[in-house]
Design a protein around this nucleic acid. Sequence first.
RNA 1: GUGGGUGUAGCUCAGCUGGUAGAGCUCUGGAUUGUGGUUCCAGCCGUCGCGGGUUCGAUCCCCGUCACUCACCCCA
Length: 434
Amino acid sequence: MGKELITRVKGVKDILPAQSIRWLEVESLARLLFSTYNYQEIRLPVFEKTEVFARSIGETSDIVEKEMYTFQDRGGESLTLRPEGTASMVRAYVENSLYGRGGVQKYYYLGPMFRAERPQAGRFRQFHQIGAEVFGSDDPAVDAETILLLVTFLTGVGVGGLEVRLNSLGCPACRPSYRAALTAFLQTRLTRLCDNCRGRIGRNPLRALDCKSPSCQEAVKDAPVIGDHLCEGCRTHFGRVRALLESQQVAYALDPRLVRGLDYYTRTAFEVTSSRLGAQNAIAGGGRYNGLVEEFGGPPTSAIGFAVGIERLITLLEGGPDLEHAPDVFVVGAGESVLVDDKVFEVAQNLRVAGIFADRAFGGGKLKNQMKKADKSGAMVTVIVGDDELTKNVATVRIMKTGEQHSVPFDELAQWLSEFVNNEEQFEDDDFDG
RNA sequence: GUGGGUGUAGCUCAGCUGGUAGAGCUCUGGAUUGUGGUUCCAGCCGUCGCGGGUUCGAUCCCCGUCACUCACCCCA
């Protein structure tokens, strides 16, 4: 106290134990499930040369225009804290010649992303994503499988009430004609568009469809729809994606306005939203980006991917009990002698080596106070080591819930406790199922 | 970058047209000798975000500033 507090940077969070447990659960499930679909992890750097993002995400995107954490390193090179994962993934795919392995490659990543935006509910300057990318196939089954993985993951971690929105953005063959039609349409209602969209018409007219400004939404209500402009290839591709999703009862809504903020998307685009999230309601988003690998100097390679926002996912999981980890066993000492202190130290260590989650009282004091610490720790069993125990060479084991106590020889203690703990956990699981 | 809301003990908050602050929880100690959770008793903790102004006097009024928060833009 007294010294001026050093606080965290705006828009970042400390994830405390009550929450970090959930994070661990979410990440573990992701790893397991993604592996089930034959994805492998790639650990990417959190910063890259600025061109990696500037080139791929699109110069006109908000991310590149105003949201990147860009700085010069000591050599004067411009570097950027990654605002998303796909660009790094593609860079790594090309740089490591992963296309040389042939066939379809599936990778996932997980970690922090950085965007210099004004924070608000569900939006942070450092946030975390779990992302998946598939390279090497334009088969609509890949699109469907990818979306299915996403949906399976989200329901698997326990979030409900989600909406999947789906659209096709066309390809270099058909998008230009749509873009022209849309631009012509927007020109006729210039006055009704917001400043932002008016400025974007020439550079990226599709974004007007996505704009949340009421006047824009009204203005684009009967704008041309991309679906009417898809080429034969894109049309059949999209139809197949939908059919496959339907075959697995994946509920989705077609949304011709879904264009996504990043420029690299082609064909399939999708987003998962929840009405329980506030204004920033997208929990995951993704799409196909068939031109990006080539853009990075690789061979022409079809690819598709998605990213899930972990913070937003966790928000939807909140409300359950706060389960902080508690040790199974807590060791206390009765008596001030060094012998007791030594024995407590030894017992705690022996239990841990035996694989038992154990902690102990520190700082000595009366048994009563140490029992309070034992209680507060949440441990189900307390091991009492005192002068009496030392002379008899047995530990006193107290079951906290019932208050019953047992005398257990020290050399049998680890065995006794691990059996007891296993039985209790078994019992709790059975109880839980019932 | 723009707008709204909030800023009082570790936490959640109270504080009536302005008279320099409380409550609950937490925490610490105690209720006789080696036994926790309940109960009872006692105790600690505040530059009322910061700076200025009005006033005899401001936590409460005014101005500024900072922080947090929500929303716009956009996205995870």
